[in-house]
């Protein structure tokens, strides 16, 4: 069932986050609000220390905000700075997929098991997890490297396996931290096209922190964070 534009997958409402108190207080996020809808690929830009990663960590239920509310995939998970679900890890497992700058594949698991692990953590049996993992690897056109260890994969292949892992539990929200930073422009384009394909075909919302200007045209909307404040920079080519 396709979501209507009125129901965002990520709804961030006046979230603030500060570190320290008094003279040492740093406001990393100041009443940031953001709505990301199914099928959208959104970029977060900003200089170092602007609060991009802090916002990504809050949306990823890794960091406690100081105030604000948040809904993920239609479920209110944060109200007035208080989490409504105590088990954040289960929340992440259920709703969010992560893609990292340096793929962060588990080095002692092959490509298939890196993907299957997430499924097994969510309760799938070994056989079903492996079957789904192979499907995902084929979907991301890296099935021929199913038995390769991460150290033997090229940067682009590793990132595609990492995307497959992020998609394993069919999350509606995918958070990507500099997903193309370690790739050349050709491979960066391929990865972004894959993410767009995932967003469209799986009705997912993708939020990516990036500095990579060569992929700006792959985003639906581009937001900029400056001194903890979020501003709409513009819309991408899509």
């Amino acid at each position: 069932m396709a979501d209507t534009p009125e129901r965002p997958l990520v709804l961030v409402d006046r979230i603030s986050k500060h570190f320290g108190e008094g003279e040492t207080r740093v406001d990393a996020l100041r009443e940031v609000s953001l709505a990301v809808y199914p099928g959208q690929v959104v970029a977060l830009l900003g200089p170092s220390g602007s609060g991009k990663t802090t916002l990504l960590n809050v949306i990823g239920c890794i960091l406690d905000p100081s105030s604000g509310s948040m809904e993920l995939d239609g479920e209110k998970v944060l109200e007035d700075g208080h989490w409504l679900r105590p088990n954040h890890r289960q929340l992440r497992l259920d709703k969010i997929g992560f893609i990292f700058q340096f793929h962060n594949l588990i080095p002692f698991l092959d490509a298939t098991d890196n993907v299957a692990l997430v499924l097994q953590l969510a309760g799938a049996d070994a056989m079903a997890a492996r079957t789904r993992a192979l499907e995902l690897l084929d979907y991301l056109e890296v099935g021929h490297r199913r038995n390769a260890m991460p150290a033997k994969l090229s940067g682009g292949e590793a990132q595609r396996v990492a995307i497959a892992r992020a998609l394993a539990n069919k999350p509606r929200i995918i958070l990507a931290d500099e997903p193309t930073a370690a790739l050349d422009s050709k491979r960066a384009g391929i990865v972004m096209d894959l993410l767009r394909k995932v967003a469209v075909e799986q009705n997912a919302a993708i939020i990516a922190v990036t500095h990579d200007e060569k992929i700006f045209d792959r985003f639906d909307r581009i937001f900029s964070l400056r001194d903890g404040r979020l501003e709409l920079e513009g819309a991408g080519a899509n």
Partner: peptide, 16 residues
């Protein structure tokens, strides 16, 4: 530690 952080991030429970 980095792998453990990744495991936690992708939802691995403490018992794992």
């Amino acid at each position: 530690l980095k792998q453990i952080a990744t495991l936690k991030l992708i939802g691995a429970p403490d018992r794992t």
